[in-house]
């Protein structure tokens, strides 16, 4: 079973993802801040990470940069979530650095499931 980690400070979103993903044949767990997320990723137990970029204090961008610094960015597929007005170029830079792809909020569930299936296949 594909192990997915959600990192988002918005409980409404993590709860929804919990229902959707666990209900559609994935093993999903989540944390609500960047620091905890980073620790979990380091334990290397996940196949896919859904990472919200705009969190307070330790943002998703910080998480990505930390992973790059420690050289473990490629150990799992990182899918970025963003609702912010970050430009495509800024996001492209993160993808070039090692993130897998990006989904813009509001998240479209069919799109998300399709993307996960796509990643699992690869």
């Amino acid at each position: 079973m594909v192990k997915i980690l959600g990192i988002d400070d918005n409980a409404d979103i993590t709860e929804m993802l919990d229902t959707v993903l666990n209900g559609s044949g994935h093993e999903f767990s989540f944390v609500n801040n960047g620091k905890d997320g980073l620790e979990k990723i380091k334990q290397n137990n996940f196949d896919i990470v859904l990472l919200d970029l705009s969190m307070p204090n330790f943002t998703g961008v910080d998480v990505v940069n930390e992973l790059i610094e420690e050289g473990i960015i490629n150990k799992q597929k990182i899918v970025l979530f963003t609702a912010s007005s970050m430009t495509d170029t800024e996001i492209d830079q993160l993808i070039q650095k090692g993130a897998h792809s990006c989904i813009r909020k509001p998240i479209d569930i069919p799109d998300l499931l399709e993307k996960l299936t796509e990643i699992e296949k690869s």
Binding site: M16, T19, V20, K105, P106, I107, I109
Partner: peptide, 12 residues
């Protein structure tokens, strides 16, 4: 941001 759970739950 609030649109994500609204749309997401509907689709779920």
């Amino acid at each position: 941001t609030p649109l994500t759970p609204i749309i997401g739950w509907c689709q779920t």
